Computed example of a mutant assay.
Amino acid sequence: MKVTISSRPAGRPDDGWGPYLAPGEVLLWDGRPEYGRRLFEFVGAERAWHLGFLIGTVALWLTWPLIEDDGSLTKGDAIWVYGALTLGFLIAAFYLAAARSYLLDSLHYAVTDRRAIVRREGRNHVLASRAYLVSCEHSSEFPYHIAEGRPHPSLTVGALLSEDVVQPFGYGLTHPGWGPLRDRGVIPVLFEQIADAEAVRALLLATSDASAAGQP
Score class of each variant (00 low, 15 high):
Met1Gly: 14
Lys2Tyr: 09
Ser6Lys: 09
Trp17Met: 06
Trp17Glu: 02
Leu28Asn: 02
Trp29Asp: 01
Asp30Thr: 12
Pro33Leu: 08
Gly36Leu: 02
Arg37Tyr: 05
Leu39Gln: 06
Arg47Pro: 01
Gly52His: 11
Ile55Lys: 02
Ala59Gln: 06
Gly71Lys: 04
Ser72Ala: 13
Ile79Asp: 04
Trp80Gly: 11
Tyr82His: 09
Gly83Glu: 08
Ala92Tyr: 07
Ala92Glu: 08
Tyr102Met: 11
Tyr102Val: 06
Ser106His: 05
Val111Met: 03
Arg119Trp: 04
Asn124Leu: 11
His125Glu: 14
Val126Arg: 15
Leu133Phe: 04
Cys136Pro: 01
Ser140Gly: 04
Phe142Arg: 06
Tyr144Asn: 07
His145Met: 08
Ile146Pro: 00
Glu148Gln: 14
Glu148Thr: 06
Arg150Trp: 12
Pro153Asp: 02
Thr156Asn: 09
Val157Cys: 05
Leu160Pro: 04
Asp164Met: 13
Gln167Gly: 08
Tyr171Met: 14
Tyr171Leu: 13
Gly172Gln: 07
Leu173Ala: 01
Gly179His: 12
Gly185Ile: 03
Ala195Arg: 15
Asp196Lys: 14
Arg201Tyr: 07
Leu203Glu: 05
Leu203His: 07
Leu205Lys: 14
Thr207Tyr: 05
Asp209Asn: 15
Ala210Tyr: 04
Ala213Ser: 12
